[in-house]
Design a protein around this nucleic acid. Sequence first.
DNA 1: TGCAAAACGGAGGCTGCCTCCGCATACTCT
DNA 2: AGAGTATGCGGAGGCAGCCTCCGTTTTGCA
Lengths: 205, 205
Amino acid sequence: MTSEMGADALKATRRPRTDALRNREHLLAAAKAVFSVGGPDASLEAVARRAGVGIGTLYRHFPTREALFEAVYRREVEQLADLAERLRADAAPVEALRRWLRSNVEFVATKKGMAAALALAAPGSSELSAYSMERLTAAVGMLLERAAAAGEIRGDIGPEDLLRTLVGMCIIHDRPGWQASVLRLVDVFVDGLRHGVRTALPPPR
Amino acid sequence: MTSEMGADALKATRRPRTDALRNREHLLAAAKAVFSVGGPDASLEAVARRAGVGIGTLYRHFPTREALFEAVYRREVEQLADLAERLRADAAPVEALRRWLRSNVEFVATKKGMAAALALAAPGSSELSAYSMERLTAAVGMLLERAAAAGEIRGDIGPEDLLRTLVGMCIIHDRPGWQASVLRLVDVFVDGLRHGVRTALPPPR
DNA sequence: TGCAAAACGGAGGCTGCCTCCGCATACTCT
DNA sequence: AGAGTATGCGGAGGCAGCCTCCGTTTTGCA
């Protein structure tokens, strides 16, 4: 606690062992594969087996199922966030929003079970996927606000709502050709956003 | 197969024992309660315990988790289908559609974990909830077609898509006040449906 | 009243979750 | 280079839930 640990105690901790890093990578790759097929309830022991490590090792690296999830998706989420940034520069407000949503559909398409996993994760444990939701919310929120500021869409729809709607649209589909349906739904929704700006508020009741 | 079973063989089978009927009711009530709290992965043994029957009895009545699910929801689904029928008589096409969707949100609001359960059930086993989906699809499809035939909404959105979108909108929400958000989302979507009818097809890309 | 069909219920085998701890290994310091 | 030790490994084991199977009990019909 005192003496030689001194000032650099924070960074002086030994850097992780190479085998630990290697195993961590193996686990992430295995988890991605297993969850993609088996969905959110896939066996963690199967993940460990596939990664070629013991179950104990899995739990040391990722103490909870949710922690593993979040780690797997962190990178993918980054990509989506970056895409939003790029679209902001490249496209007109509403069009950028529309394209981002469409890209999201394609992204989900490659994941199968993962969409459900992510969706269920959010409400399940309050801790889980805080990062992912936060990042995506910020990304889409930026696009939303820009379009709203430009007066092109109604301004009372929040980024969380939009994200949830999107996830919901994707979550059930498993039959071939579902992507076309969802893309159409996205267009309908975006049209609805634009429409709302004209009539101020839609007739209640 | 022949002789005295004769013509009324179909109805001549002994009618179910009273205890069997009673236990079945108990199981359905228990399942509704347990699933509402614990979500789709709640313990079936907990359901049996709550119903005051053995686990074997549960499995005899409902051979699979999905069968139990479907049975629980059959009645609730009926109510929604009936509502669609009533709205058809009472409201203008688009307004009927909007109200039905809004009622659905309120319905889901009282179920908590059940929404996720239903959503996950559909893709999980091909057999499951066939009835429910079919019934609701028919109900909302009727409203959709009526509005489309009246030329008030675009015609290329199917009832399944609409249902999935709706479920998706509801699925994540757990915080207080979420209903208001979802009701707004529903309005946005309906606006989008109406808007689409004017511009024929939205600009792709 | 008697008896067979129908239903009951829980023991038991299986799998997955997660913890715990003795053993192996890779850094660090001399 | 060598030794010492923190760090990581991995699986055994306890627990809970899933589902099956079968001996026992109950009920309805004759």
